[in-house]
């Protein structure tokens, strides 16, 4: 708290509101005015911070509260482990979608992480400067393309291509979705990895070269291990994006509630199932609640991801 100024004949004992009105410089002293501004600014800041937290907790609360109603009619075990999703028969087993989400994310990461790291190494270590100054902004722009555009391209170009290449009749399914997602997360992962590689101090490279290692050996044995925490950060960020992605996935995955035990079988994941069904469910039904529960599940998964990112960042700062 600021100290109250020595009493002046006019402003002493006067309410703040009325002292604001007194326009003569002597009547209203500066310290009081400052303390008023400082305090109200502080209050506004705190209020904004609380507001943001409140939104987060409200979302969590409402998703969770509605979702939990699922378990009035469906046992948690059935919900998580049964693959019978037939709302018209009151069967709400979400295993297909949970499995689909994890399988899709895993497959996406399997393709995108090695590719991204190679792109990042190329960008950070081997590209001439003029190409770098061109490629980096291009990749940053790719991050901002709306996902529906990627989905559209997947539907009109990728799926016919997959049909031709493999001879399957459909083409929709995990692989198509994973390829579209790979294209989406590739710029994110490779740009962050690129930054992590560039941040590796030159002295490590010098030491490695001075011991007689080639460029390839230096990158694989020194640079990439030193950039490990940055790369992990990039991977988890990409994973978060892949898990939550809806539009692009809906357009290529086939949207059929069957277990994705093949790469080309139309299936469904948490996000795509929610968006396909939420618009035509009765409001007070287990069906609706089950969809909410699935949304809540996604929310929890992404929160865990964010916590992981935080932990890795903190570890990165320490080492």
């Amino acid at each position: 708290m600021l100290q109250t100024p020595p009493p002046s004949p006019v402003s002493n004992g006067v309410e703040l509101g009325s002292s604001l009105k007194s326009s003569s410089g002597q009547a209203f002293d500066r310290k009081k005015r400052l303390s008023f501004y400082n305090r109200s600014f502080k209050v506004i800041c705190i209020a904004s911070a609380i507001f943001v937290c409140l939104i987060l907790f409200t979302i969590l609360f409402f998703m969770g509260r509605t979702g939990i109603l699922t378990f009035d009619t469906v046992s948690p075990f059935t919900f998580f482990f049964s693959s019978e999703w037939a709302p018209e028969n009151d069967q709400y087993g979400a295993f297909i979608f949970i499995f689909g989400t994890f399988a899709l994310t895993f497959l996406t990461m399997l393709i995108s992480v090695p590719l991204s790291v190679i792109i990042a190494v190329f960008l950070a270590e081997m590209t001439p400067t003029w190409l770098k100054t061109m490629l980096r902004p291009v990749m940053d722009l790719l991050v901002g393309i709306p996902s529906v555009v990627y989905g559209f391209l997947g539907m009109t170009i990728l799926i016919p291509l997959l049909r031709d290449l493999t001879g399957t009749s459909m083409g929709d399914g995990l692989l198509a979705a994973a390829i579209v997602l790979t294209i989406m997360v590739l710029p994110t992962i490779s740009r962050i990895t690129d930054d992590a590689i560039v941040a590796v101090p030159k002295k490590y490279r010098d030491a490695s070269y001075a011991l007689g290692s080639t460029r390839f050996q230096t990158i694989v044995r020194v640079v990439l291990p030193a950039a490990k925490s940055g790369i992990m950060y990039a991977v988890i960020l990409g994973m978060g994006r892949a898990i939550g992605e809806t539009m692009a996935v809906v357009m290529v995955i086939g949207n059929t509630p069957q277990l994705a035990d093949e790469l080309f079988k139309p299936t469904s994941v948490l996000t795509s199932n929610i968006v396909m069904q939420i618009s035509n469910v009765p409001f007070d039904s287990s069906w609706n609640y089950a969809l909410y529960m699935m949304g809540f599940l996604l929310l929890i998964i992404s929160l865990v991801m964010i916590v992981l990112v935080r932990l890795i960042q903190r570890k990165g700062v320490k080492s």
Partner: peptide
């Protein structure tokens, strides 16, 4: 690479790998 194997170097800043 062979030359650098035969001619080792120690730098101004200690630079052990992490």
């Amino acid at each position: 690479e062979t030359l650098r194997k035969k001619v080792g170097m120690v730098f101004q800043q200690p630079n052990p790998f992490p």
